[in-house]
Design a protein around this nucleic acid. Structure first.
Lengths: 143, 143
DNA sequence: GTTGAATAATACGAACATCGTAATATCTTT
DNA sequence: AAAGATATTACGATGTTCGTATTATTCAAC
């Protein structure tokens, strides 16, 4: 089997460095007010897992639970997140996005959508599917 | 001209999210001792621009100069960085990596190298060049 | 040549995020 | 009912980032 050449590896590394500098997933767009990276990721996660608890978020983001506690505090104060006490287990907290939180997430996803669109537009139409297939292979392969 | 479909955009977005979670450029490898992101980037920048000043680093990383001052303090204390007073302008400071700093950067670049190698290995040999060409197109295209 | 403005870096203090430990409340098991 | 397990929060410590003020040096103008 053929192994990648050092030239290929170097080219990939250089391109990815520019790539990640150019397409920042974490950019708030400049308009929104200073939201921590953890805060942003928490919002996105809760948006995709409504009713989840702080523990789930902490495990997913690999941060201490007290950090998520602070983050949810901030987000609740800003009116982006809601804490609910579920009937079943009254120790737990179920997190949900507020209306404003949903709007925030939607805006962010729109920004991402535009970014991905811009990436694909830089390719020829007949290249796009094969690029997607390859990046999926790299991202999802086991081992 | 054909525009990307929403399906393509969604697939790309999902793949890139997993991709960036899986291949963290910022991972210190787990062995090294808690180096700030700014510290790490400062080391890499100085490695590529020996003799540069704190102002250059601050401009490149887009952080306050006092932040770089603190970062260089930490790095000097750890023995990874050296401050020199150049002859020409005695206000300025010329930054250079120490031996230990060079070793650190080398280790980090080796880790990156391995990561890029792993990415390419997940592709078929005849896919690699076209993938590199496409990611370069996306990264470097103007406009 | 001396004075005044501009440049380069640092010292200091404030604000804030993250984390570990301890405390509180609720569920589960015996 | 008691003991332990689980889920979250309160509190204090540490550390990073940043803004302002300060010091040192160079450049410009008179």
């Amino acid at each position: 089997m053929t192994i990648p050449t050092n030239l290929q590896i170097a080219a990939l590394g250089a391109a990815l460095e520019t790539f990640s500098r150019r397409y920042k997933m974490t950019d708030t767009g400049g308009l929104e007010r200073a939201l921590t990276e953890v805060d942003t990721q928490t919002l996105l996660y809760v948006g995709k897992h409504p009713g989840c608890g702080p523990t789930d978020v902490a495990r997913f983001l690999r941060v201490a639970m007290t950090t998520i506690s602070s983050a949810t505090d901030r987000l609740v104060k800003r009116g982006l997140l809601e804490r609910h006490r579920p009937e079943g287990d009254r120790r737990a907290v179920a997190l949900r996005l507020s209306k404003a939180g949903e709007a925030h997430v939607a805006a962010q996803e729109l920004a991402h959508h535009k970014m991905f669109l811009m990436m694909l537009e830089r390719l020829e139409p007949d290249e796009r599917d094969s690029f997607i297939a390859m990046i999926e292979k790299i991202a999802y392969s086991e081992g």
